[in-house]
Amino acid sequence: MNIEKNAMPTHRFVLPFERLPATLPIFPLRNAVVMPGAQLPLNVFEPRYLNLVFDSLGAERMIGMVQPDSAAKGEHQPKLYRTGTAARISSFSETPDGRLLIVLTGVCRFDIREEIPTTRGYRRVVPDWDRFRDDYELSGPVPGDPGKIMELLKEYFQRKNLNPNWPVLTQLPLPVLVNVLITQLPFDVPERQALVETVSIEERYAKLLGLLEFEMVAARVGTDAKPH
């Protein structure tokens, strides 16, 4: 799992909430979200998105990740979900064949107020940050039993044959852990988007817990139903 241990809003490279940009270039990508405090690696090769990265590196280093909404049809380009996450380019490297390998670190979610025209191939929006000021507060307690989600995760990772970095996961504040799991776990697009749009960490934690519990119950039933 990609985690930046110092990716809290007080990180010296993170813009203060009051200085978040008035416009934001966006990278619409299905099943790719990056919640605040989590990291997302991207392989960038399309010319328009290379333009986006280079332009961002020359400005605030901020990119908005928004999922396309396959249920809504656009006339010329895919419709977008209303809510995404702004992330900073925390590292990048070039490849000999002309690609960029970048790592995005999530900063703050936003709602799309409007889309504005551009001349560089990629899309740009006017973000509304107001609902997500609390994304800058990721260290507070979350009501509930932290041990419950860890037990579910042990079973989840075992069934998926995954070997996470447990020492790092167990040391994360619960709000950061929730955001990292939303970013990294292979949820369906509508499920992941519902988590992205959930404002409070308490509700987000409850929804995440519910999804994990449902999947584990379904997996147990499926295993029990198989002939021996």
Score class of each variant (00 low, 15 high):
174 L>M: 14
76 H>L: 12
169 L>V: 07
60 E>T: 15
223 T>L: 13
178 V>S: 07
170 T>W: 03
182 I>E: 01
202 E>G: 00
3 I>N: 05
199 V>R: 08
75 E>D: 15
176 V>G: 07
167 P>W: 04
169 L>Q: 03
39 Q>F: 01
85 T>M: 02
157 F>L: 11
39 Q>L: 09
134 D>S: 15
137 E>R: 08
208 L>V: 09
192 R>F: 08
124 R>V: 10
174 L>D: 11
18 E>F: 02
125 V>T: 03
2 N>L: 12
61 R>G: 05
98 G>W: 06
177 L>P: 04
68 P>I: 01
149 I>D: 01
168 V>E: 14
55 D>I: 11
48 R>S: 09
160 K>S: 15
35 M>I: 10
205 Y>I: 03
61 R>W: 08
204 R>C: 02
45 F>Q: 07
78 P>K: 15
105 T>D: 06
105 T>C: 03
92 F>E: 00
72 A>Y: 03
172 L>Y: 04
65 M>W: 02
62 M>Y: 07
36 P>F: 14
89 I>M: 02
74 G>K: 05
194 A>D: 06
107 V>K: 00
82 R>N: 05
106 G>S: 01
156 Y>L: 11
15 L>K: 11
189 V>A: 14
123 R>E: 00
142 V>R: 08
120 R>A: 12
127 P>I: 02
19 R>E: 15
171 Q>F: 03
141 P>F: 02
7 A>L: 08
135 D>W: 04
77 Q>P: 01
221 V>Q: 13
196 V>A: 07
198 T>M: 06
228 H>G: 13
143 P>I: 00
123 R>T: 02
21 P>F: 06
168 V>A: 14
161 N>W: 10
40 L>H: 08
225 A>T: 08
121 G>D: 09
98 G>T: 04
194 A>R: 13
96 P>Y: 09
195 L>P: 01
222 G>W: 01
25 P>D: 10
14 V>S: 11
141 P>I: 01
72 A>D: 11
94 E>S: 14
159 R>L: 15
42 L>F: 05
159 R>C: 05
51 N>Y: 12
16 P>G: 10
127 P>N: 04
181 L>K: 03
97 D>K: 08
90 S>Y: 02
186 P>S: 10
122 Y>D: 00
127 P>M: 05
38 A>V: 06
